[in-house]
């Protein structure tokens, strides 16, 4: 049903070796992008006419916030594939996404709070954007709690996938919250198609940082996936050969 290529990589052994091969590539791309993005954000971009130097928090805040939603969608899609086609690899992808997504969500909330204090005069407001992002953190934590409290992998994956899919409704709420409700949070600056209200010298570092975060996510997803596959397949001959035949790890 999935075609020969996907079947090939859905075989845990091949998926493991693919993840192993891809890890250093994405790691190096991510490191280079982080260096360029941080230099661009802290040095190259001019200070904002309104917010001064404090706007530089955007370069760690916005990519984290984007990733918090992107990783959730990846987790929900992987969970759905695991649920529908019973591909164990997809369950492993979903499980690996959760702690990464939770980290990005936490970063979005904390850096947003640190940015909010000098700009709004408060660390926190219970408005739609901040509250829905906090709910996203609870969805991730709920998913992780489910995974660790259910011993049977299949059951844990099914329960997690259902939770993740129900929680998807929160994603458009986060995205449109600044348009649907009045809020202290500023509106979208980048995704407005007609006239982006951010200058190109400020926009380029933001885009570089976003790709840096994305490749960082892919890198660490590969590493987490490797451990998940090893754990799933610990009683198979190929894991036995890998562990006993390999160098002292």
């Amino acid at each position: 049903m999935l075609g020969p290529t996907i079947d090939k990589y859905a075989a845990p052994k091949n998926a493991y070796s693919l993840a192993f091969t891809l890890t250093p590539w994405f790691a190096w791309i991510s490191i280079l992008l982080f260096i360029g993005g941080i230099y661009g954000g802290l040095v190259y971009a001019p200070p904002d006419y309104d917010q001064g130097e404090s706007f530089r928090i955007i370069y760690v805040h916005v990519p984290a916030a984007w990733m918090s939603m992107f990783v959730y969608v990846v987790m929900a899609i992987a969970g759905a594939c695991g649920l529908i086609w019973k591909v164990k690899l997809m369950d492993a992808v979903a499980r690996s996404c959760a702690p990464l997504g939770a980290s990005f969500t936490l970063l979005a909330l904390v850096t947003g709070s640190i940015w909010g204090k000098p700009m709004w005069g408060t660390w926190w407001v219970w408005d739609a954007r901040l509250t829905s992002e906090l709910i996203l953190l609870f969805l991730y934590l709920g998913y992780m709690a489910l995974q660790s409290s259910i011993d049977d992998r299949r059951t844990a994956a099914r329960a997690g996938a259902i939770l993740a899919l129900v929680g998807v409704v929160n994603i458009p709420i986060i995205h449109f919250s600044v348009e649907w409700w009045n809020t202290l949070h500023q509106g979208p600056t980048v995704t407005k198609l007609d006239t982006p209200s951010i200058h190109v010298t400020m926009l380029i570092p933001l885009l570089i940082m976003s790709i840096a975060y994305t490749t960082f996510f892919i890198t660490m997803l590969m590493v987490r996936l490797r451990a998940e596959i090893l754990d799933q397949e610990r009683n198979t001959t190929w894991v036995r050969d890998l562990v006993l035949g390999g160098t002292d790890k």
Binding site: E53, I57, T111, I114, P118, F216, M220
Partner: peptide
């Protein structure tokens, strides 16, 4: 940082710490 040093550097510092933990723990 134009008087915003505490805010800018703490935001970057916390991001760095969380990302590094995300490298160390899975490895």
């Amino acid at each position: 940082m134009g008087g915003y040093a505490a805010y800018v550097w703490s935001a970057y510092g916390i991001s760095l710490v969380v990302l590094i933990l995300n490298i160390i723990l899975p490895i």
